[in-house]
Amino acid sequence: MNLNDYNTPCQPNWCPGCGNFGTWTAWKQAAASQNWDSSNTALVAGIGCHGHLVNFTNVNSIEGLHGRPLPVATGVKLANNKLNVFVFTGDGDCLAEGGNHFMNTCRRNHDLTIILHDNAIYGLTTGQTSPRTPMGFKSKSTPLGNIDMPLNPLEVAIAAGATFVARVFCMDIPKLTEIIIAANNHKGVALIDVLQPCPSFNPEYTAQYLKENTYYVDDSYDPSNKLGAIEKAMAWGEKQIACGILYQDKKQKSYEELIPFIQDQAIVALPLQNRDVSSLFNKLV
């Protein structure tokens, strides 16, 4: 497929300036370069502005329920571990409604690529705080100022056991494309925290703010150092937001690699027919 083949007849309905445009473009570029298509790839999206992506992208997909793309994607991957499985989720979808799934998916290290559309706000429902929204932020649900501490998904992911953790600014399309490819090639849970502006509802993390305050780690940075990665990930603020691949464990096997009988073929590739269970009955005689 070439780049244009990835578009469906449905036009994106995101707001002008929405970070989703950047993320979507980067994914399509990665897909075109790697030949991801409906014969070898599945997309699973949650609910949020990000979720609409599946309508615009010409690859077979599931749009599930709010907070639930991770267990759905887990089921897809376990049934057919030969598929490239991408999860598109948001900061509310993943860290609030789906928090339990996020923690457990990371610790189980399933071979999934999680693209977290992180705009630090609830966009689709028109502007409530998310677990990423900074303290003091005045939103529709926190008109007096947010008094919750925000969560750092990278920190949580590393602590929970994810083996590939990256952060990118959505408008750095070539960089994001590269990292999406690297994430998919990585065997295990790969989380990409994609920083996105939400021009409609997040006046703090604008495209300009994100562009000015993010930087990419260079070759001297060692992504195999777990504690160093957590420290790097925690930093936030003026000129402090580290981007790039912040953590990668290349040694830990993915969950799927630890199941011997699906190494040669996926469970769905085994012939499906009535099975003889008389050996199980005989044990009960």
Partner: peptide, 25 residues
């Protein structure tokens, strides 16, 4: 020749089964 997975909760249990079914299982 089947997979049993213990999920983190019953929400995930059914969601995983739905994902697997969509992959043809």
């Amino acid at each position: 020749g089947f997979i049993y997975k213990q999920p983190e909760d019953e929400i995930a249990a059914l969601q995983m089964a739905i994902g697997a079914a969509n992959a043809g299982a």
